[in-house]
Design a protein around this nucleic acid. Structure first.
Lengths: 345, 345
DNA sequence: CTGAAAGCGCTTACAG
DNA sequence: CTGAAAGCGCTTACAG
């Protein structure tokens, strides 16, 4: 590989001049610029990004750590949409995205700090939001920039995040079911150790409270974001007889689809007998029959915004501090309908 | 950030000794090793990966370029599975994955060469396999290691790839339909400018030929891997009356799902009146009703194998040359059944 | 086992 | 506008 010295030698200039010619910033006489580019072309020279990074102490790279150990992670629409948002903004701002795997929730921290400590990236977008792993507490003690997708469990005023108002939109979805006449409404959450699950549960409870409905503990279950989790939740709850839910709120579409599959098995018609609402507006929510009513959560936009905040902070040499909510939307499709006492059993 | 010099100063040794202590390779007296680690700990020292990369001329990073501009790319199961395979192997071998976006099919080449030219990665896994863009021809002219997921359009004996035998498995899928008594079988391909589409079309034709069926040009359509593409293909073909297909082969599950949606609209029962086979075994193929018969293509495994070949070559300082097929499997589920002349109309 | 030196390929403050 | 020098933070061949 040709280096800047080779080009300099061939063009009869100092290496620093070659550097300036390629930087595009410095003023160079048109004549020497020409000579340099001709020489570079002839030698098939490409500036070495690593050398530049070392010199300027900036990599033009943002990182993300993905728990590759959970196959389910790659079947949910969350992950690809996050990558898409990141990539879009990074591309446009001239950054690359460095992805590290992780072995477990704890390893997520280890890997995050490894990337940051070894300075392989200028900053990081952090996804992990488990209540039992205080990533954020650890991160804010160091100086590398980071932005969370999802709020931190504890409220740190000095930490930057982008999030959907999960509580509010879950409340809205459940309120819609109530408005359709439903009273016995199930909540099928994801991983109970994840912050978003708690937030959604709060929203669910708020909706019931506002309507004066007393929540029954049997209506609450956790499906860990998996289709099978939605399925088993129904198996459990359908046994409640007179207290069996007539509507299900599920914290992602995969679980909602599992709910629908279980109801089909039990010969319970959706939405005639039971209504189902999912979350995320995953592609498959549109492809199932009946098409799933769901809360659109713009994960690509969230990630894009996080990347934007992060890169801007990096570029301006400051800490990211912005905290932003994105808007969601309840998409009413065919899996929800009015409560029909006549058809309920 | 503390550097190796700071640690050396505090431990009272030469920087090179610190380097050796952290390399893990060189022999160091237990005593000085201790002193060094204590000093490193006190200073919160982490070796700078960029500096190391520059020095050893290796980044411990493999790259991949993703056309972030196509939203559909992120709705297909292909992309997340590829990332999963890459991440798994990279993690295990101590590599990271660098992801670059791209703006168009042509830009894919530009970005690939930019990453390689600037030496941001030690090698690259290449996805783009368009017939009109000779990425491979350009790549083999340079010396950076690369492995293709999917064979190159032209046969380059010196290029490394991992692929499914698309022709063979499509033939197998179509042969299965024929064996079920179907004669009028549609082919809904992806993007006709992509190599895999041609391969599948060949397999389709081979199956018909083997059974002595004359393929009818109207049975062939391209849905560009989108659900809507499958839908419109049916709209077009259902008008063929007596020549309308009684079975559809679709080159991905999204299109197969579109096919099923169109048939539902036309009140044509699957599989009683018409059979449908998809491809890829995407998560949603299991969630639709009836569950989709499909060809499982192990994209995560393919990507993992590609990463394995690439990283091994990098580590051994040689060109990757392996060419490997992975096994697919026809998963017979509920969307296919015997041809029933009595129910066909 | 450890030190001193040179080098990886850039950038940039300092002179002129 | 251009050059010469020092430096970014590591690694490693060479001595001892």
């Amino acid at each position: 590989m040709a280096t800047i010295r080779d080009v300099a030698a061939r063009a009869g200039v100092n290496p620093s001049t070659v550097s300036r010619a390629f930087s595009g910033q410095a003023k160079i006489s048109e004549d020497t610029r020409q000579r340099i580019f001709v020489a570079a072309e002839a030698l098939n020279f490409h500036p070495n990004a690593i050398a530049r990074s070392l010199s300027v102490r900036r990599t033009q790279t943002i990182a993300i750590v993905i728990p590759h150990i959970f196959p389910g992670f790659f079947e949910d629409s969350f992950f690809p949409q996050v990558i898409r948002g990141l990539l879009e903004v990074a591309y446009q701002r001239g950054f690359r995205v460095l992805v590290g795997g992780s072995n477990s929730h704890e390893d997520n921290i280890t890997q995050t700090f490894q990337i940051l400590g070894s300075q392989q990236a200028d900053g990081i977008v952090v996804l992990s939001n488990r209540l039992d792993v205080d990533t954020v507490g650890a991160l804010r003690k160091q100086k590398m920039p980071f932005v969370l997708v999802g709020r931190p469990p504890a409220h740190y005023a000095d930490v930057s995040w982008v999030d959907a108002d999960n509580e509010r939109y879950t409340q809205m979805a459940v309120a819609y079911l109530i408005q359709q006449g439903h009273q016995r409404i199930a909540f099928v959450g994801g991983d109970p150790e994840v912050a978003v699950t708690r937030e959604r549960l709060k929203g669910y409870q708020a909706a019931l409270d506002a309507a004066g409905i007393r929540a029954c503990p049997e209506w609450i279950d956790y499906g860990y974001f998996a289709e099978a989790g939605g399925y088993t939740a129904v198996q459990r709850m359908a046994r409640l007889d007179k207290m069996a839910p007539t509507a299900y709120y599920a914290a992602n579409d995969l679980m909602a689809i599992g709910v629908m599959r279980a109801l089909r098995t039990l010969q319970i018609a959706v939405p005639d007998q039971v209504s189902v609402i999912g979350t995320n507006n995953a592609p498959e929510s549109l492809h199932v029959v009946p098409a799933l009513t769901t809360v659109h959560v713009p994960y690509a936009d969230m990630a894009a915004l996080a990347a934007e905040i992060l890169i801007t902070a990096i570029t301006n040499d400051e800490r990211p501090i912005a905290q932003r909510y994105v808007d969601c939307e309840l998409l009413i499709r065919d899996s929800t309908g009015p409560y029909r006492p006549d058809r309920a059993e």
